[in-house]
């Protein structure tokens, strides 16, 4: 396992609300390898963004426990100076909303320049300018020289996201974290940006963590997928297994709830109830149990673990074995009755 880039063990990220700490990321363990795209899928409140921010050390007021092993350095315990050297250099990040992720008062060229300068303090200004222009070319900006001197508000949404990507890859990072990189974009721009990330992956050979809620994006991009619910990973597998043979009730429900182009469904599956808020997360037992009340209590584990059901395919809790969709059961009953 030489190609493991990031080895996360029992990561727990907690936020303080009033006088108590609440874990938004609760006991997450996973690895990210070089050259792979690991997708983290979940809805809002699943803890997927808090997870990404924990790796980058971008939380300002959170308690982080566990181990984030990156080349022998535990990022969870690293000091500010160590993190400063890694961030933007070996680890790059792409944000969801490019307009707000860019400083409105700086030309975009200067913002990319800053990313290079911070990690190459001795480089000359003219060399850096060349590098920035190259980067702008690389991310598909049509007129790099002109764009260099433009402000974020002068560019379109797609162009801005390209700038954010250029900034993230400016020092050839080994780990790239993309937090919902296309959510704010139109479909045609989304496909362009996804293709760009794919092409960049081939050239910079980075390990990519792709945070998304969009299962279509997952199917297009990911090598492996981790599904998060309520701060925990509920299922992790390679993308083919996960999309074709999903096991955890949450994964299956999620896949059933999206309308797709390939098959027209009469009715979409609805997951009962709501995602619990951070303060109201069930901390014991199966966290998804409340959303599938028709499954018997005995089907769940008392303290659900991830079980490896086939090589590389992990599912949390035992409830997946007894899970069925109520509407399917009804259909079957009708069928038998007739």
């Amino acid at each position: 396992m030489n190609d493991v880039l990031l080895n996360i063990k029992n990561l727990k990220t907690s936020f303080r609300i009033k006088d108590d700490y609440y874990a938004a990321v609760d006991d997450v363990s996973l690895t990210v390898r070089k050259n792979e795209v690991l997708a983290i899928v979940g809805e809002s409140g699943s803890g997927k963004s808090a997870f990404a921010f924990s790796i980058m050390g971008l939380h300002t007021r959170a308690k982080i426990e566990g181990e984030i092993d990156y080349k022998g350095i535990n990022l969870a315990k690293a000091n500010a100076n160590q993190m400063k050297k890694l961030r933007g250099n070996e680890m790059g990040m792409i944000f969801q909303d490019a307009l707000s992720a860019l400083n409105p008062l700086m030309v975009v060229g200067a913002q990319i320049d800053e990313a290079i300068l911070l990690h190459n303090p001795k480089s000359s200004k003219s060399l850096r300018k060349k590098q920035v222009i190259n980067l702008l070319n690389q991310v598909g900006i049509p007129r790099p020289e002109k764009t260099y001197d433009q402000y974020p508000h002068e560019l379109s949404g797609g162009m801005r996201q390209r700038i954010v990507i250029a900034m993230a890859i400016s020092n050839q990072p080994e780990l790239l974290i993309a937090d919902e990189p296309t959510t704010a974009l139109d479909v045609t721009i989304q496909s362009q940006i996804l293709d760009l990330i794919k092409e960049l992956k081939e050239t910079i050979h980075a390990g990519i963590i792709l945070i998304t809620h969009d299962l279509g994006v997952v199917a297009e991009m990911a090598d492996r997928v981790a599904v998060m619910y309520a701060g925990q990973i509920v299922e992790i597998a390679d993308v083919y297994t996960l999309m074709e043979n999903p096991q955890h009730p949450y994964t299956r429900s999620l896949l059933n709830s999206i309308p797709t182009l390939n098959e027209v469904k009469e009715e979409l599956h609805v997951i009962q109830g709501v995602v619990p808020s951070l303060q109201n997360l069930p901390r014991t037992g199966c966290r998804f149990a409340a959303r599938i009340p028709w499954i018997e209590e005995s089907a769940h584990e008392a303290s659900p673990e991830l079980h490896e059901i086939s090589p590389g395919h992990y599912v949390r809790c035992t409830c997946y074995k007894d899970f069925y969709f109520p509407e399917q059961a009804e259909e079957e009953r009708n069928y038998v009755a007739n």
């Binding site: 971008l58 500010a80 961030r87 944000f95 707000s100 992720a101 860019l102 400083n103 409105p104």
Partner: peptide
Amino acid sequence: KDFIVTARAKGSSESRVYNRHVLRNSLL
């Protein structure tokens, strides 16, 4: 603001984050 997170993600030190990004934008 989000761009302050971006500045940190680029590897800026806290003092640089304040001097280059927070201050400039707040003094305007």
